[in-house]
Design a protein around this nucleic acid. Structure first.
Length: 152
DNA sequence: GCCAACGTTGGC
DNA sequence: GCCAACGTTGGC
């Protein structure tokens, strides 16, 4: 089992939106970065654990946990003319973008803020700590455990 | 709202 | 295939 971190802007889709979604499940749509796409398409497996991170908001940080409940399939929004995520270069035969489905598991007792994550020297690998705009990133078991420990 | 970082595009 | 220009992300 692998660990991941997904960023989301809570104004658009928050951990609470996930909790309140039908079956507490959503397609993680709209990822339009190739590195993130490759993780989604190739590496994220059923049962993997996902930290939900709120970005571009007052309280940035990891707020909860979700579980991968469906592996990659083409992101339907790339074919949807009315979607912000529409991509004219994507075809059914050659989709460019993929989604996985995640299901709500729990909120963290205490949000693990970006500030605290950056200040925690035991968190060594997490891409969040470096500059980067990656919206889907792997998390090592060590870093995962550190963040969980911070949130209790 | 600012701006640094960085990914993407397109001319050559 | 280089690289400048441009657009977007995302913290503050």
């Amino acid at each position: 089992m692998s660990y991941w971190l997904f960023k989301t802007e809570p104004d658009a889709f928050s951990i609470d939106d996930l909790k309140n979604a039908p079956n507490q499940t959503t397609l993680w749509e709209g990822v339009r970065n190739y590195q993130a796409r490759n993780f989604i398409r190739d590496d994220i497996k059923l049962g993997d654990q996902v930290m939900i991170y709120h970005s571009s908001c007052k309280l940035v940080g990891v707020v909860g946990i979700a579980t991968v409940t469906c592996e990659a399939y083409p992101d339907p929004t790339q074919f949807d003319l009315s979607s912000d995520y529409y991509d004219a270069k994507a075809t059914n035969d050659k989709p460019r973008w993929f989604v996985v489905e995640v299901t709500y598991k729990n909120h963290l007792n205490k949000r693990a803020s970006l500030k605290d994550i950056k200040a925690n020297n035991a968190i060594t690998e997490l891409a969040l700590k470096k500059a980067g705009r990656l919206s889907v990133m792997p998390v090592t078991k060590n870093d995962w455990n550190e963040i969980i420990a911070m949130s209790n």
